[in-house]
């Protein structure tokens, strides 16, 4: 069975941003949360609610459908895999994603694509995130 990232209970979130630090660090070797695939934000300042933007692991991903070079291919269990070699940086995937889960790395000219590695879930101190088993 494949696994995908799930944001089960964001009401537990304390806004520590550890998920973003480890994602940006491990996946993009950068200290900046700007490079993270998962985004935690607040609505209305810190007294507002913490909300997440994270790839929903679509079975029919719009981002892959609009990709003109075939750089995004279907991932087992949902979501996509990025082939950096095939990507030309057109940003169509970014604008196709309804929930804005695709961000763009200006330095590398590549989209920031979550590949559901689960590191953010492993480092979430409050079990807001989890890796759930889904059919392949």
């Amino acid at each position: 069975m494949a696994k995908v990232l799930s944001t089960g209970d964001m009401s537990k979130c304390i806004g520590c941003f550890t998920c973003m630090f480890v994602c940006a660090g491990a996946n993009r070797q950068d200290h900046s949360i700007q490079k993270s695939c998962i985004k935690i934000r607040t609505y209305g300042g810190i007294s507002g609610k913490f909300v997440e933007t994270v790839c929903h692991a679509c079975r029919e991903p719009a981002c892959a459908e609009v990709c003109p070079t075939g750089a995004l291919t279907l991932r087992k269990g949902g979501g996509v895999i990025l082939s950096k070699k095939k990507c030309m940086g057109c940003r169509r995937c970014e604008s196709s994603c309804l929930i804005k889960a695709v961000d763009f790395d200006e330095d590398l000219n590549l989209p920031i694509i979550c590949h559901h590695c689960g590191l953010c879930a492993r480092y979430c101190p409050h079990e807001c995130l989890s890796m759930d088993e889904v059919p392949d």
Partner: peptide, 26 residues
């Protein structure tokens, strides 16, 4: 507003230190 990127120089070494500290805290 903090919107700069700061590439990590030695990821393996850094992340090992990060993990140890994270575990100690949590």
């Amino acid at each position: 507003v903090g919107d700069r990127s700061v590439p990590i120089q030695n990821f393996k070494r850094y992340f090992k230190a990060y993990q140890d500290l994270y575990k100690k805290c949590v």
